[in-house]
Amino acid sequence: MTQYYFSFGSNMSAHRLKARLPDAKRIGVARLHGYELAFDMLSLDGSGKCTIHPHDERLVYGVVWQLNVEEQEQLHRIEGPRYDVAHVDVVLSENEQLLSAFCYVANTVDKVALPFDWYVQHVHLGAQEANLPKTYIESIKNQASVEDLNRERRQHEMQIHLKE
């Protein structure tokens, strides 16, 4: 059985998601109304990662991926226990079709934690790749971040964008 996954963070990037789930199929760009994007999920490495929060006047852009059951289970293991699985209705930008999908919403939030620079780059590159609205892409690019002093981790994270 296939599932639709709405990614609004680093998994918008095909390079990032395909490194994790090589057989995932990109369905298209979508909007989630009534939420806003935030970088305040407290990760195990102490940095902030993407999540969404309810907000009546905002919307979140992202990419919908089609996954099989095994891929969904693998992604649940990767994303881990600091996220809850939520089911949302998104609107595909290409044809305005309403689609039910799952996404990950943080259950551990820290409004002070900042994302690592490489993580913001994952999200920014994914937003560019998806051709999201320029103002949305700019808001991601301008997200405050901290330099990851673990050079090996940073290099590992960014080299997936160098592969073709």
Rank of each mutant, 00 (worst) to 15 (best):
H53F: 14
A144R: 11
E147R: 11
G80H: 07
M12A: 02
W118I: 05
L132E: 03
R26Y: 07
N142K: 13
Y136G: 00
I160N: 02
Q159C: 10
Y83S: 07
Y104T: 08
A19Y: 09
A86Q: 12
S13Q: 02
D56W: 01
W118Y: 10
Q74C: 10
E164P: 05
E138H: 10
A30S: 02
Q159D: 12
D40C: 11
E96L: 14
V123G: 01
A113N: 02
H124W: 15
M1Q: 10
R58N: 14
F8N: 01
L42T: 04
L98W: 12
M12C: 12
A38E: 10
N131I: 11
Y61V: 07
L21H: 03
R82Y: 06
A38G: 09
L67R: 05
Q66D: 08
Q66I: 05
H161S: 07
T2A: 08
D45N: 14
K134N: 10
K111S: 14
S47W: 01
Q72I: 04
L149T: 13
A19G: 14
D56N: 13
A14L: 08
G80D: 06
E73H: 11
R16Y: 08
A130S: 11
H161A: 07
I27C: 05
Y119T: 12
V60W: 02
K163H: 13
V88E: 06
N68D: 15
R58I: 04
K49N: 05
H161W: 06
K25C: 10
S139M: 12
F116N: 04
E96K: 15
L37N: 00
I140H: 00
D40W: 02
H53W: 09
C103Q: 05
A30I: 00
Q72V: 09
Q155C: 09
F102T: 08
M158T: 12
R31S: 14
E138R: 11
Q155W: 00
K25L: 12
F102H: 13
G28Q: 07
Q72M: 14
E70R: 10
